[in-house]
């Protein structure tokens, strides 16, 4: 076992891990942050997406030891300081961008990464950026719409409701 320490959502978290311990496991089991979900074992679904030193990654493909010393942000760290939903989270609620909620943490983390890189993405750019995140409930319509809205773009004319 090796001791690792990382800063998760601004809080230092330490724990002893095996070589094989994944970052996703560390987040869920050591840090107790179960908002990061595991939806597959081939790094395809994106439900486990978090930010490591500012870059979005699938935490099921990163070993905990590789994140030793890193700044990690998870869905639990996305709300505003007063605990209210941030702009992206709020847009997901406003536009019904989630149903069962399982893919949602990964979607929000991905949307945040996108808007940081590209503050006013086109629909095509949003859809392309979501390639690594599977949702089985929404048909993506309202996820794309929510992200467009979160970027400050007018979504009132998007298809029908």
């Amino acid at each position: 076992m090796t001791d690792v320490t990382m800063t998760i959502n601004g809080r230092a978290v330490s724990g002893a891990v095996e070589g094989r311990t994944l970052l996703s496991t560390f987040l869920r089991e050591t840090a107790g942050l179960t908002g990061t979900h595991i939806g597959c074992d081939t790094a395809q679904c994106g439900a486990c997406t978090v930010h490591v030193n500012g870059a979005s990654m699938k935490s099921c493909t990163v070993f905990a030891q590789e994140a030793d010393g890193a700044e990690v942000t998870t869905i639990e760290g996305m709300a505003n300081a007063d605990g209210s939903l941030n702009t992206i989270q709020q847009a997901f609620q406003d536009h019904h961008g989630l149903q069962c909620g399982f893919c949602t943490p990964g979607m929000v983390m991905t949307a945040a990464a996108l808007l940081k890189e590209n503050p006013k993405p086109s629909e095509t750019e949003v859809r392309d950026y979501l390639k690594g995140n599977l949702c089985r409930c929404t048909g993506y319509h309202n996820i794309v719409k929510a992200i467009m809205a979160a970027s400050g773009q007018d979504v009132s004319a998007i298809a029908a409701e």
Partner: peptide, 15 residues
């Protein structure tokens, strides 16, 4: 707006 979204969006859903 869905009330359950608050927990799902903040990572506090309980699966």
């Amino acid at each position: 707006k869905r009330r359950e979204d608050i927990r799902f969006l903040s990572g506090t859903g309980r699966y």
